[in-house]
């Protein structure tokens, strides 16, 4: 795309047009082309919203919104169709909470260690390993959850189903850990030296300095990292599809099989539902809920950073 232009300029010169005017035209053409590239992202957003909204709208012409949000049975792919998204939302919440209970403190702890205690060498060794952890394909993590973590958990805790949110949540904790750590490290290290020195000057110990000065000062970044991690956990698909199972189950017992919203989308999207059938449309309705939740969380995390971050100049 960019290559064309010198050619155009060259040809124009040969024809003998006014160089300056031609240049201006060429520049304008290039500017427009580049703008078009940038507009692809806008088109993507519109397409995402449109593709979800269109089918969701069709879905809610046949299914009542009240049933969708209040019923506790979700069987859109069966003969006797029921459309209550509650079990899927509960499944997602269950896996996400388990992942957060383990992953958020671990991620923050690792961030504090890397930012405040670790020497240069440790930091240079550990950071790439965390990047590798973040880069492991989720299908590999799902395999690990199903075939390694689940047997171990079933050995330790009696009555755990083969598919369960426990092992999915445990492995997902390590998926979100690098997200929390990398963003939190950045915001911890951004806390200015003067604040630290003031803290020491007041007689604070290292522990007191970190918990009373550094972490509060970096809180906006830490909270933003938590929200992003939660959003990532909610949208994660392969680990839960493989390890948490596909049967929607309205229960608060994490030993039972529980389907999440994303697992259902995979299940419905890879099944042989006829396009346009109510079963196929339910996929878009679930996606609408998922998309809304993650979008709200993403905007929230940006707001947290903008509103509450303290500028030190």
């Amino acid at each position: 795309m960019e290559r064309k232009t010198p050619g155009m300029l060259g040809r124009a010169r040969a024809v003998g047009l006014n160089k300056r005017a031609d240049r201006r035209v060429g520049e304008a053409v290039i500017g427009t082309l580049l703008l078009l590239c940038a507009l692809v992202s806008v088109v993507t957003t519109v397409a995402v919203v449109y593709s979800i909204a269109e089918e969701t709208f069709q879905f809610f012409r046949e299914v009542s919104v009240v049933e969708f949000f209040t019923s506790r049975v979700w069987t859109p792919l069966f003969e006797n169709q029921n459309f209550g998204i509650a079990p899927l939302v509960l499944g997602t919440l269950m896996v996400t909470s388990i992942a957060c209970v383990i992953g958020l403190p671990l991620g923050l702890g690792a961030a504090i260690y890397l930012a405040e205690f670790a020497g240069d060498r440790t930091r240079r060794t550990v950071t790439p390993i965390l990047e590798v952890l973040a880069g492991i394909p989720t299908v590999a993590l799902g395999y690990f959850a199903l075939l390694f973590v689940t047997p171990v958990i079933r050995d330790l805790i009696p009555g755990v189903n083969l598919f369960n949110p426990l092992s999915a949540g445990f492995v997902m904790a390590f998926l979100i850990l690098p997200t929390v750590t990398s963003i939190s490290v950045d915001s911890l290290r951004a806390v200015p030296r003067s604040l630290r020195e003031a803290g020491y000057g007041l007689g604070a110990s290292k522990f007191e300095l970190i918990t009373r000065v550094v972490v509060p000062a970096a809180l906006s970044g830490i909270i933003a990292s938590f929200i992003l991690a939660i959003s990532r956990a909610i949208g994660e698909t392969m680990i839960v599809t493989l390890a948490s199972g596909g049967r929607p189950n309205f229960t608060f017992d994490p030993r039972q099989e529980m389907a999440t919203m994303t697992a259902f989308i995979v299940q419905a999207g890879t099944g042989d539902q006829a396009a346009g059938s109510l079963g196929a449309r339910s996929l878009y309705a679930v996606a609408a809920v998922l998309f809304t939740i993650t979008l709200v969380l993403n905007i929230l995390s940006q707001q947290v950073v903008r509103r509450f971050s303290e500028k030190y100049e």
Binding site: A47, V48, E236, F291
Partner: peptide, 15 residues
């Protein structure tokens, strides 16, 4: 663009 980067990958599958 920043918000698109945070959209779950499965949503792109639906798109």
């Amino acid at each position: 663009i920043r918000n698109l980067a945070g959209v779950p990958s499965i949503v792109y599958g639906i798109l």
